[in-house]
Nucleic acid binder design. Structure first.
Lengths: 155, 155
DNA sequence: TTTGAAAAACATCACTT
DNA sequence: AAGTGATGTTTTTCAAA
């Protein structure tokens, strides 16, 4: 779980974050010029944002279907109540899993995972079901990933 | 929809992608040194990967709860069959939406969205329901984002 | 916290192998 | 398809404001 404490950011931080969200390989120097601050200021701001955990990292956005991972699936899982946290920790560490959400309702955990084939998904589900903490699962294969982008517009 | 055609990548491309997934602000020069290739080679490889759409962009990973977006929710939506594609396109453009999946079953579309408050989520749902293409929705509020990371381990 | 300045590191390009 | 070398940029650091 991430720390929920809201961090105060000013207009400079916000502009910096917006530009890094758009393109994390941008040069701080050019951005500084555009913003009329010194490169050192942006450098300091960025260090602070990383240090405070607002910025968790920098990454490339990849089209996984082009790399041979065309199958995306959504799994809903009902876990024995005492072991939900432990189970979530376990699945979070699995290589194919991109998201794990704690939800309420008929199921306890929702996860999104990507695979090279339906066979790999099948193997994944079968290995999950061996886990005695799991009571029930529901699998939905995604026909089409219409959008998958971790960025929201910050205001 | 992304193009599904698998692109062939060799060991150099793969290493480059893995390192960019880990840290997209890495310098190609340093990485080239580590890999015993020239910086120009990595530069060319990266240009090709971007050009072919394997790399869709570079971004910062942000802890949105620290920026004042503590509410994540999952919405399942049943859409009037003729208008699914059109609806998906519409919601993909909304600022709060991070993922839109085409699924089969009781609902047609699953979307994940982030909000500043439950009130904002409520407003969002009410505005969705005004859309005559929508027949039914089911909303699940995420109690805890256990993992949310667009990166999978590529092999 | 921000700046300016300077050194070290970097990206990029035309050219070569 | 990959490397080399040149050129202009960029990052990073730090003393001073």
């Amino acid at each position: 779980m991430s720390d929920r404490k809201k961090i105060e950011i000013d207009a400079i931080d916000k502009k910096l974050l917006i530009e890094l969200l758009k393109d994390s390989r941008i040069s701080l120097r050019r951005l500084a010029e555009e913003m009329n601050v010194s490169p050192a200021t942006l450098h300091n701001r960025l260090m602070r944002l990383v240090q405070e955990g607002v910025v968790k990292g920098f990454t490339a956005l990849i089209d996984y279907s082009k790399l041979g991972y065309p199958v995306t699936s959504i799994l809903m899982i009902k876990v024995d109540g005492k072991h939900i946290l432990e189970f979530e920790k376990e699945v979070s560490n699995l290589d194919n899993v991109v998201a794990v959400y704690d939800v309420v309702g008929e199921y306890d955990v929702m996860l999104i995972a990507k695979f090279r084939s339906i066979e790999d998904l099948d193997t994944f589900i079968k290995s999950l079901l061996k886990n005695p903490k799991i009571e029930r699962t529901y699998t939905s294969i995604v026909l089409n990933v219409v959008k998958e982008d971790p960025r929201i517009k910050i205001i």
